[in-house]
C-alpha cells in the first residue's frame, strides 16, 4: 500500500471527522445543558442543506448562501426549540425520544412536500474546483481542504466561545449543574434557546458543506445523526472537547477501516475470507470502538466535571 493513498484516506477521515464534529457539538451541548435527547438534530442537518442549497441557487453563490443560511438556521433552531422542545425538558427521556422522532417524520415529509422527493443538487463554484498540491507528490481536492479549514476554524471559535467568554462560562455552568446555575440567576430558558440556535447553525453548516459533494436528500441527516451519537457517547456527553477528539477518532477510524481493513486482514486470513469479512467488519469498526471505550469508561473519554453517567 503506498503512502499517498494512506495520506489521502487519512485526510478523508479527517474531513468526515470535521462534519461529525459540527453535528456532535450542538448535540452534546443540548444534551449536556438541558438533558434533552434530540433525535431531530439530524433533521436540522438536512434542513441546513436544503435551505442553504436554495439560498445558494437563488444568490448564485455558495459563499453568500452559506452566510445567509446562518441567520436562517438560527431562527429555525430557536423556533423549533420554543414551539416543540421547550415543553419536553421536564419529561422523561422516553417522551423526548418519541416526540423528536415525531419531529423527524414531520420534517422529512415537509421537506418532501416543499422540495419534492428528488432532492437538491448544488454545484461546486468554479473557484473551489481543482486540487491543491500538499507536497511530497500528494494532491488533494481543494474543496475538501476548505471543509477541513472551515471545520477547524469553527472548532477554534467554539472553543474560544465556550472557554473564554461570559456566555461560554454560563453554558459550562449550565452543563455541570443546571439547577445551581439557575439558582444563581442565569436565565436558563434564554441560554438554552441560544445554545440550541447555535447547534442548529452548526448542524445546518455541516449539511450545506457536504451538499456540493453528495447533494441534499431527504433523510440525509439520519446516518450522520447516529454517527454523531456514537461520537458524543465516546467523547462524554456535554463535553465539546470530547466531541472534537471523538469525532476525529471516529471519522478517521471509519474511513481507514473501509479503505484498508481488507488489506490488513489479508495478512492473517486467506484471500476470499478477507474479502468477505473486510467490508462487514469495517462497517462495524466504530461501534466496536464505542463498545470497547464504554466498557472501560462508561462516561466516555472526557466526562464534563460534575456530570455522572447515572443521571
Amino acid at each position: 500500500m503506498d503512502y499517498i493513498l494512506l495520506v489521502e484516506q487519512l485526510l478523508n477521515g479527517f474531513q468526515l471527522g470535521i462534519i461529525l464534529f459540527l453535528m456532535a457539538a450542538g448535540l452534546t451541548l443540548v444534551f449536556g445543558i438541558m438533558d434533552l435527547v434530540n433525535l431531530a438534530h439530524g433533521s436540522l442537518f438536512m434542513i441546513g442543506a436544503f435551505v442553504g442549497g436554495t439560498l445558494t441557487l437563488v444568490t448564485d453563490s455558495l459563499v453568500l448562501g452559506a452566510v445567509l443560511m446562518v441567520p436562517a438556521m438560527f431562527a429555525i433552531g430557536v423556533l423549533v426549540e420554543t414551539i416543540a422542545l421547550r415543553t419536553l425538558y421536564r419529561r422523561s427521556h422516553l417522551d423526548q425520544v418519541l416526540a423528536t422522532f415525531g419531529l423527524i417524520l414531520f420534517f422529512n415529509e415537509a421537506t418532501r412536500l416543499i422540495w419534492g422527493p428528488a432532492g437538491l443538487a448544488v454545484p461546486l463554484p468554479e473557484f473551489l474546483e481543482g486540487t491543491v498540491a500538499l507536497g511530497a507528490g500528494i494532491t488533494y481536492p481543494l474543496y475538501r481542504v476548505v471543509i477541513i479549514v472551515i471545520g477547524l476554524l469553527v472548532a477554534l471559535g467554539l472553543y474560544l466561545l465556550v472557554a473564554q467568554t461570559r456566555f461560554g462560562m454560563l453554558v459550562r455552568a449550565g452543563a455541570s449543574n443546571r439547577v445551581m446555575a439557575g439558582a444563581l440567576g442565569v436565565n436558563i430558558p434564554v441560554l438554552f434557546s441560544l445554545v440550541f440556535g447555535i447547534g442548529a447553525v452548526l448542524a445546518g453548516l455541516a449539511g450545506l458543506i457536504i451538499t456540493p459533494i453528495t447533494q441534499a436528500a431527504i433523510g440525509m441527516g439520519e446516518d450522520v445523526l447516529i454517527l454523531a451519537f456514537v461520537v458524543i457517547v465516546i467523547g462524554g456527553i456535554g463535553s465539546v472537547r470530547g466531541a472534537f477528539v471523538a469525532a476525529l477518532l471516529t471519522g478517521i477510524i471509519d474511513t481507514m477501516g473501509r479503505s484498508f481493513l481488507d488489506v490488513v486482514l489479508l495478512l492473517f486470513l486467506p484471500a476470499n475470507a478477507a474479502e468477505s469479512a473486510g467490508p462487514a467488519l469495517s462497517s462495524m469498526l466504530i461501534y466496536i470502538l464505542m463498545a470497547g471505550i464504554l466498557f472501560f469508561r462508561p462516561q466516555g473519554l472526557f466526562p464534563p466535571r460534575g456530570a455522572t453517567a447515572a443521571s
Partner: peptide
Amino acid sequence: RGIYFIMI
C-alpha cells in the same frame, strides 16, 4: 443508564 443506554 439513561441517555447513554438509549444511544448505545
